[in-house]
Design a protein around this nucleic acid. Structure first.
Lengths: 138, 138
DNA sequence: TTACAAATCGAAATGATTACGATAGAATAG
DNA sequence: CTATTCTATCGTAATCATTTCGATTTGTAA
């Protein structure tokens, strides 16, 4: 994902370019994992002293709605990461130290075809947590 | 899980019996699935008009800490259910219609031993959602 | 350049949860 | 049974993340 791609999607959907939006995208593109609104605010304040909370949260919501970002909840706060471009279904390993997310190739659903033969499965949630090789070797 | 078992665990850990605590346990034992603090409050208010939020949240935290309840987060709020007594690790199928939770025998972790050979997996979250046979046949 | 809708600001409101001083109540020993 | 001692609860205020709002600024298309 490039910043320009994100901006293009914004414009296609009738939203305007702003430096702040470009920088928010840049922040998440370079972050390899999930980041909080507070972390984004801290980053943005270095360039835009006095930036409004409204701007932070409004754009996070907008980007998620446009599927430029995806989110999960932890300890009462929402965490965001850049959306995976691959449209295919997949799950993630998430490093609890640095937040890195590794897309996983396999899906565990087939494990349960037998056990849930009489059940009708609609959706599922699956995430692995631990340490990436880099953090584990520290 | 019986109410008495829960009360016994409370006492073993130096906490006292109260009618409110017994009723909170009763509520979750009879509930089919996850319930919010707000839902518990509504239930408790029918018996204890004017019950304090402090009592609701303090006991939810206590019960989770004693592993009488387990929780997950959704839409910015924490949801609680009675803990499964089987000490063995397992996952759940959750019926989206009636809230029934079916413990699953298998764990999908082995699927990823190869893919995550260099990673150190600590925990994982896995839940299946859909319709149980009863609800599906209606 | 002008005009207008959208974006941002600064601040207040909201919703879930936690904390606190004062009072009530459960458990224990005498 | 009563006194004593912690724990639990109440009523309310505080906290934290997030949302909302009126006023102002800014991107952009004509």
């Amino acid at each position: 994902m490039q910043v320009n791609e994100g901006i293009a999607i914004l414009k296609e959907n009738g939203h305007k370019y702003t430096d702040k939006r470009a920088d928010i995208l840049t922040y998440f593109i370079h972050a390899k994992g999930y980041r909080s609104a507070k972390a984004l605010l801290a980053y943005m304040e270095t360039s835009y002293s006095g930036i409004s909370l409204d701007t932070i949260y409004r754009n996070l919501r907008l980007f998620e709605q446009l599927e430029l970002l995806e989110s999960r909840e932890k300890n009462g706060e929402k965490l965001f990461k850049i959306a995976c471009k691959s449209g295919t279904h997949h799950h993630h390993f998430i490093c609890e130290s640095c937040g890195l997310t590794k897309p996983l190739q396999k899906c565990p659903l087939p494990v349960y075809t037998e056990e849930l033969a009489d059940y009708h499965v609609n959706t599922h949630a699956f995430e692995l947590y631990g340490l990436c090789p880099t953090c584990h070797n520290r």
